[in-house]
Design a protein around this nucleic acid. Structure first.
Length: 540
DNA sequence: ATAGGGTTAG
């Protein structure tokens, strides 16, 4: 059985840099270092490499090479420039470089580093593969007050070759900025590095682009993207290399980057730009995947552009990319919104042809489409099919059916439907009742409407609280029947109950008074509406 | 340690 002893080099490999850089009480000698005995940059600051400094550097290097693990006595007189000097000496011996860094951090956690000394340590740690330790140095560097991005980048760059470093140091810098949510800084550092001819890996760029896109700084993300694509061959080579290196992951970094940018541009309504990037993607020889197409397709749907949507869709099919349920539901929603139910039904059938199983959202959209037009029998056909596939009707679907009854002028059948569903265990919500209430109001059946308001408040029906939609429906009903006194009572009641009137409330009131030729009252409510911060309806 | 979601009321 082997007993492992804890030796200094083991301590130095402890994962958490903070514990390592903190002096351990049990290990520090009784003569703990007084603050004034700690090395400081001010003590011998002026000369960059005085004779005493270079002598000190020699002594430290010698001691470390001899395997003398405790060079604490020498380190006491150390200044940041000497740190840099020592690390330059060890550029070809990473284990000694690490030992020095660890000794320094272990004995003097409060050493007053400069950007240069931290940079040198970062290079050594990155080369040694100790990324989390390197990252804590980066954090230390970027958190030092009054340090500009230019200084940070310059420090890393000026110590770069003497430390025998490589560009993955810059990846770490960018990633650290990104993780610290300092995206402006990350972007500036990226730009600076690129202007100096250094590269940042595709991965780090993607992390930056993704974060920029997420907070809406699509312009900056676009800038990073352009810089990547402008740098051309090198980057693309790297992309393809990576792609070949990890086929098991199943995605290509090039496609990934484009998808991030395209999706971000779509999300922020910059569809035309997204299309430009898409074209650029095709030109660079990459194949768009379902994510690429979904971003474009969904944005085209949201815009209500049916022609564009169908172009994207057929383009996608021509590449044998199978659209998923989200693509289909987006398209069906587009066509039901514009009243083109034939098209919606066509895509509903395509769902099955594509080998997908329609879910409740797909059924909702189709049922809703029919119900909005009052085509109850079609809606029921779809409903029956849904039930036969053992998909349970959701509140939303039931509400759509209620809407369908009301649209076809049959609010009381809608109420029967609701009651039947309640018996089957369905739990209605405010929208269920509000839809029905508005249906009765349109049929000028105010007593039924009132009855439902009472009903929705009953505990056994769910104990729902009437909201602004409920009150607006009732108030609207009174206004249409020229019962303006009653309408005002409703207004007062809703305010009293803490439900704020909205633009629709005032529109009903104003319209009611106008149709009675009572312009004084109409203007009074018009002013009140403006006072409450609602802009007037287009009608005025 | 990297992108990504669809459906309801006046």
């Amino acid at each position: 059985m082997v007993v492992h002893r804890i030796i200094p080099s083991r301590i130095s490999r402890l994962k958490d840099p903070l514990t390592r850089f903190k002096p351990l009480k049990t290990l520090t000698t009784s003569s703990s270092p007084a603050p004034e005995s700690e090395p400081s940059s001010s003590s011998s600051s002026s000369s960059s490499s005085s004779d005493s400094d270079s002598f000190l550097v020699e002594k430290i290097c010698f001691s470390l090479k001899q395997g003398n693990s405790n060079v604490r006595n020498h380190l006491i007189r150390l200044n940041p420039l000497a740190v840099v000097e020592v690390l330059y000496r060890f550029r070809n011996d990473l284990s000694l470089g690490q030992r020095f860094v660890d000794q320094l951090g272990f004995n003097f956690p409060n050493f007053k580093h400069t950007s240069l000394s931290l940079s040198a340590m970062i290079h050594i740690l990155v080369r040694s593969g100790r990324l989390s330790d390197a990252q804590s140095c980066v954090l230390r560097m970027i958190r030092r007050s009054g340090v500009s991005r230019v200084e940070i980048v310059n420090s890393l760059v000026s110590t770069y070759s003497n430390c025998g470093s490589n560009d993955s140091v810059f990846d770490l810098l960018i990633r650290t900025f990104v993780q610290a949510r300092k995206l402006r800084e990350a972007y500036e550092a990226f730009t600076l590095l690129r202007s100096k001819g250094y590269t940042v890996s595709i991965d780090a760029c993607n992390a930056l682009i993704g974060s920029l896109v997420r907070i809406g700084w699509v312009e900056l993300a676009w800038g990073v993207y352009q810089e990547i694509s402008r740098s051309g061959v090198g980057f693309m080579e790297e992309a393809f290399e990576l792609m070949n290196a990890m086929p098991s992951k199943g995605f290509s970094p090039g496609v990934y980057t484009y998808n991030t940018v395209i999706n971000g541009l779509c999300k922020h309504g910059k569809y035309e730009r997204a299309k430009e990037v898409f074209v650029e993607m095709l030109r660079s020889g990459l194949s768009p995947d379902s994510t690429t197409y979904r971003s474009l397709l969904m944005e085209a749907c949201k815009k209500g552009d049916a022609v564009e949507t169908e172009n994207i869709f057929s383009d996608m099919r021509s590449r044998d990319i199978v659209p998923d349920l989200v693509c289909f539901s987006s398209m069906m929603s587009l066509f039901t919104r514009s009243g083109n139910l034939d098209k919606a039904l066509m895509y509903f059938n395509s769902v099955k042809e594509a080998g997908l199983i329609p879910d409740n959202v797909i059924y909702t959209i189709l049922i809703q489409g029919y119900c909005r037009k009052g085509h109850l029998s079609e809606a029921f056909r779809v409903w029956d099919e849904m039930i036969s596939k053992s998909i349970k009707p959701t509140v939303m679907i039931c509400n759509s059916m209620i809407k369908g009854y009301c649209r076809s002028g049959n609010a009381s059948d809608g109420e029967s439907f609701l009651e039947k569903m309640i018996l089957e265990g369905f739990v209605p919500d405010c929208i269920s009742y509000n839809t029905l209430i508005y249906g009765f109001v349109k049929e000028e059946n105010m007593s039924k409407a009132f009855g439902l308001v009472k009903k929705m408040e009953e505990k056994k029906q769910g104990g729902l609280v009437p909201d602004v939609f409920t009150y607006n429906s009732i108030l609207h009903g009174f206004c249409r029947q020229n019962q303006m006194k009653e309408a005002e009572v409703v207004l007062r009641k809703m305010i009293e109950r803490g439900v704020n009137p909205d633009r629709s409330t005032y529109t009903s009131l104003i319209n009611g008074f106008v149709s009675q030729d009572n312009l004084t009252e109409a203007f009074r409510f018009h002013d009140e509406m403006l006072q409450r911060g609602f802009s007037p309806d287009d009608k005025f």
